[in-house]
Amino acid sequence: MAFLELKNVCKSYINKGITTQVLTDINLGIEEGEFVAIVGFTGSGKTTLINLINGLLEPDSGEVLLKGKPVDGPGPDRGVIFQNYSILPWLTVYQNIKLAVDEVLPDLSKKERDAHIRRYIEMVNLTHATDKRPAELSGGMRQRVSVARALAMSPQVLLMDEPLSALDALTRGTLQKEIINIWSKDQKTALLITNDVDEGIIMADRIIPLKPGPNATLGPEFSVNIPRPRNITEINKNSTYKKLRNEVLEYLIEVGSTRVQNDGVEYLLPDLKPVMPGRIWPGKRKKSEKVKYF
């Protein structure tokens, strides 16, 4: 029996009398300590899937089981990291994490809790920003707070809903490494939702594509048999990596190509030469950066 299991899960939405079947027959089993990545298209129902696992939504049919028991509403045993950080802007980093820890570990003494919080702040390399507010932090740092908060709750399962999508490429790479470092210390069960295949390969043990909706189902599984730790420059030379990457990408291209829309109507392009219109703005000079009107 798997640690986290989804059996024949279906979910639909009703909007203005029209039923949209978002997810159909989702079957997923995640073993304890496994890191699984689900790669999907935008709008295919990835967020719905995460919300079914963390208990914010209930499936129409099928079961969502954690350690054999059905999931009943949200709870700290499933820690979630969202795309838009969701940290409270009027609290400092320390206070944000403290809020979660106080909820989950009320039995610990104040000192123990303090140590617990600081340990996780240290884990995400934010010790220098312990007492700063979110407005003073960059996007990457805010996401680290989110990670620390989720981990500090000692969840059984870590759910990540496109956590790094909103960050620039450099920060994204750095945070990928950090999350994997942290994960390898505790080896928690983790589920990552992403739209970047490379991110999935770097971080996960298994990659499962989510086909585009409606009626989205999970595609075939791809095992990532590349030893950890995985370094992005070195992995490029690994033949297993190349083969796997191509396999996943080609599968996604095939599945995604059914989405292209075109009628087959042909229009003719008149053969004309373009003309440079009008005069440029008054007062525009090479040196000025801004154009002032007058």
Binding site: M276, P277, G278, R279, I280, W281, P282, V291, Y293
Partner: peptide, 12 residues
């Protein structure tokens, strides 16, 4: 929008 207008060289 202003940039688009500049590229298209729209007059005032």
């Amino acid at each position: 929008f202003i940039n688009v207008a500049k590229v298209l060289r729209l007059n005032i």
